[in-house]
C-alpha cells in the first residue's frame, strides 16, 4: 500500500495512547477480562509495539464465575502470543475474609472484584492499569478521561479531573497513585465489532449464537448455571442466544439471536435498539450504579 491515510482515526489514537503508557509509566498492566474489548486492546497493543513484544503483562481478576469458554480462550491467546499473564482470584479475597459473598436473588461477584483488583495493584506496584472501558457504554463513563488518576485508595474523584488538551496526556503521579488508561475511550460498540470483523480477530464462542439453558427474569435472559441464583418457579428453557458483553455469569444477560458469525453479529448490532449495558444486570440496580462503583475503584 502507498500511504497510511486509510487507517482509521480511532486505531491511530489507540496506538498513540499505548505508546504513551509504555513511555510514561514504569509498571503498566493490561487488565484482561477475556471479553471482546480487552481482546481488541491486545491486538492494538501488538500493533503499537511491533516488532517488539508488548512491553507489559496482562492481568485477569478472576471471579471464579466466568464462562468456561472465556477462560479457555484467555489461556490460548496468551500462549499463542507469548504474553505474560497474571491471575488473581476473588475466591482468595473471600477466603481471606476481605470481602463477603453476596447472597440472594441478585447476588453476584462482580462488585467483589474491586477489592481483589486494588490489592493486586498494590502487590505488583502497578502505576498504570489499561482497560477497555468506552465512553459510549454508560453515562458516568462518558466523563472519564483517557488518563484517569486514582488515589491511594483506588478512588475516582469525578469532580476534580485533569483537563486533557489536544493529544497531550499527563501521566505524572505521586507514589501510591495510579492511572487508569482507556485507549478505546472514543470507540463505540459498533466500532469495536467492525474492527474485530475487519481484523479477523478471534473471540470467545459465546459471542456467537449458540444453544444454551437459560431462564427469564425481569425481562432479561439469565444463564442457568451453578453460579447464578435461580428460583424454583423460574423455568429452564433451551434457546439460541448470544452475549453482547462478557462478564460474570451472574451479571451478564444474553440476547436471543441467530447471529452465528461475525458478519451477522455486526449487522445485528447495527440494527439493535438495546444498548450494550442494557444487558448488564449490575447497572439495572440503579441509575447511578456505575458512578458509585467507579468512585470506589471499580474499573
Amino acid at each position: 500500500m502507498k500511504d497510511t491515510s486509510h487507517i482509521n482515526a480511532l486505531e491511530n489514537e489507540a496506538v498513540y495512547i499505548f505508546r504513551e503508557v509504555a513511555a510514561q509509566f514504569e509498571r503498566p498492566v493490561l487488565l484482561f477480562s477475556g471479553g471482546k474489548d480487552s481482546i481488541t486492546l491486545v491486538r492494538l497493543a501488538q500493533k503499537a509495539f511491533w516488532p517488539a513484544k508488548i512491553p507489559f503483562p496482562l492481568m485477569h481478576i478472576d471471579t471464579g464465575h466466568n464462562f468456561p469458554e472465556t477462560i479457555e480462550f484467555r489461556d490460548r491467546l496468551v500462549e499463542e502470543l507469548g504474553l505474560e499473564l497474571i491471575v488473581r482470584n476473588v475466591q482468595d479475597s473471600i477466603d481471606q475474609g476481605k470481602v463477603k459473598e453476596e447472597s440472594g436473588r441478585y447476588s453476584s461477584r462482580n462488585s467483589l472484584q474491586t477489592t481483589t483488583l486494588l490489592d493486586s495493584i498494590e502487590e505488583f506496584k502497578f502505576d498504570a492499569c489499561i482497560g477497555g472501558a468506552r465512553r459510549d457504554e454508560e453515562k458516568a463513563r462518558a466523563k472519564e478521561r483517557i488518563f484517569s488518576v486514582r488515589d491511594d485508595f483506588g478512588q475516582w474523584d469525578e469532580r476534580n479531573q485533569r483537563p486533557e488538551l489536544f493529544d497531550m496526556l499527563n501521566g505524572q503521579i505521586e507514589l501510591g497513585q495510579n492511572v487508569r488508561v482507556f485507549p478505546i475511550s472514543n470507540w463505540t460498540e459498533l466500532d469495536v465489532w467492525s474492527y474485530i470483523k475487519e481484523e479477523n480477530i478471534e473471540i470467545p464462542s459465546i459471542y456467537f449464537a449458540h444453544k444454551r439453558k437459560v431462564f427469564l427474569r425481569d425481562g432479561l435472559i439469565w444463564s442457568h448455571s451453578d453460579y447464578v441464583y435461580q428460583e424454583e418457579d423460574e423455568e429452564v428453557l433451551e434457546r439460541m442466544v448470544r452475549f453482547r458483553t462478557v462478564g460474570d455469569m451472574s451479571c451478564t444477560a444474553a440476547v436471543f439471536s441467530e447471529a452465528s458469525d461475525i458478519e451477522s453479529v455486526v449487522a445485528e448490532i447495527r440494527d439493535s435498539t438495546i444498548s450494550e449495558r442494557g444487558a448488564r444486570i449490575d447497572d439495572k440496580r440503579s441509575e447511578a450504579a456505575m458512578e458509585k462503583r467507579k468512585q470506589q475503584g471499580y474499573f
Binding site: 500500500m1 502507498k2 500511504d3 497510511t4 491515510s5 487507517i7 482515526a9 486505531e11 491511530n12 489514537e13 496506538v15 498513540y16 505508546r19 501488538q46 500493533k47 503499537a48 511491533w50 516488532p51
Partner: peptide, 19 residues
C-alpha cells in the same frame, strides 16, 4: 522505512501513528 504494525508504506499521512 515507514511501518504501521508489520506493513510497510511509502508515505505516512497526517495523524497516523507509524514507526
Amino acid at each position: 522505512e515507514i511501518y504501521f504494525h508489520d506493513k510497510k508504506y511509502k508515505t505516512a499521512s497526517r495523524r497516523s501513528s507509524v514507526t
